Amino acid sequence: MYKVFVNDKPLFLTNEIAKETDFQLFLLESIDIEQLIIKMFNNKISKAYLYYPDEKEILKKLKEQIPVRKAGGGLVYNKKGEVLFILRNGKWDLPKGGIEKEEEIEHTALREVEEETGVNKLQITKKLQKTYHIFKRNGKYRLKITHWYEMTTTFEGIPVPQENEGIEKVAWLNPEQIKEALKNSYENIKLLFEEEIFQR
């Protein structure tokens, strides 16, 4: 099952029909995907299932209906075990950004972390899960698939927010501060920490 966030609301891609009643269920093959997205953006639907019988094909089917943008990002630890966060649009987020032509996705993740925060000496330690969310750009909806990597750094300078990307602040947060920050963050960022807490 895939979890795609639309305006921070969950849209589950599933090959099973669940008996829960508070979710609306739609058939991926027959739904007007843009209408469903608009309803979720306008708070008319708070959570939904998109059903397709073949789980291996389900994401491919969604991609046929909505343009895809690939991005890479980092969950970066310093030597003290703190995590690098950015504050953008008043919400805590992790550094990430879109892939450039001919670029390897790992390189995208490293480049974006450095550009958005000024933190270098980065090393990828492992691949984390991908996250999926739908956003609107120039009047069109797109599916953003972000490839996340756990990274470490020996950087000891002062991080610098990339202001032209709307980043207001960059901060190293300890586990207690992370809990607070996640209360004012995005659902797909919270997902990464659910995975991370069990792994470390």
Results as ranks from 00 to 15, higher is better:
Lys44His: 09
Lys56Met: 12
Lys80Gly: 04
His107Trp: 14
Lys136Asn: 03
Gly118Asp: 01
Gln35Glu: 15
Ile45Asp: 06
Val4Met: 07
Glu112Lys: 13
Glu156Arg: 12
Asn43Thr: 02
Tyr132Ile: 13
His107Met: 15
Ala48Asn: 02
Ala109Asp: 00
Tyr132Val: 11
Lys56Gly: 09
Leu143Cys: 03
Leu182Thr: 04
Lys44Tyr: 01
Gln162Met: 06
Gln177Leu: 05
Glu176Gln: 14
Leu59Val: 05
Ile197Cys: 09
Phe198Leu: 15
Leu25Gly: 06
Lys91Gly: 00
Ala18Glu: 12
Ile99His: 03
Leu28Val: 07
Asn174Met: 02
Gln162Phe: 09
Thr154Cys: 03
Lys126Ala: 08
Thr153Trp: 00
Lys136Tyr: 06
Gly74Asn: 05
Ile58Leu: 10
Asn120Ile: 03
Leu87Thr: 07
Ile45Val: 08
Leu182Asp: 09
Lys47Glu: 10
Lys91Phe: 09
Asn78Tyr: 04
Lys80Cys: 05
Gly97Asn: 09
Gln162Pro: 08
Gln24Met: 13
Tyr2Glu: 05
Ile86Trp: 10
Lys80Met: 02
Thr117Asn: 09
Glu114Ile: 00
Gly97Asp: 11
Glu104Lys: 14
Tyr141Met: 10
Ser30Arg: 06
Lys127Met: 14
Ile105Trp: 15
Asn138His: 03
Arg200Thr: 15
Lys47Ser: 11
Phe135Leu: 14
Glu102Phe: 15
Glu106Asp: 12
Trp92Arg: 00
Thr154Asn: 11
Phe5Ala: 01
Ala109Glu: 02
Leu25Ala: 12
Glu195Thr: 15
Thr154Leu: 08
Leu36Cys: 01
Arg111Asn: 11
Lys63Trp: 01
Lys144Asp: 10
Gly90Ser: 02
Gly139Asp: 07
Ser185Lys: 00
Phe26Asp: 01
Glu187Met: 12
Tyr51Pro: 05
His147Lys: 08
Phe198His: 14
Ile124Val: 08
Lys136Val: 01
Ile167Ser: 12
Lys44Phe: 09
Tyr51Gly: 04
Asn138Glu: 12
Tyr49Met: 09
Thr131Pro: 03
Tyr149Pro: 11
Leu192Trp: 01
Lys130Ser: 13
Leu110Arg: 10
Gly73Lys: 04
Thr152Met: 13
Val76Asp: 05
Gln35His: 14
Lys79Val: 06
Tyr186Trp: 14
Thr131Glu: 09
Val160Glu: 10
Gln162Ser: 07
Ile178Thr: 10
Ala18Phe: 14
Ser30Lys: 04
Glu57Trp: 12
Glu82Ser: 07
Lys80Ser: 11
Tyr51Glu: 02
Met1Pro: 14
Arg142Thr: 00
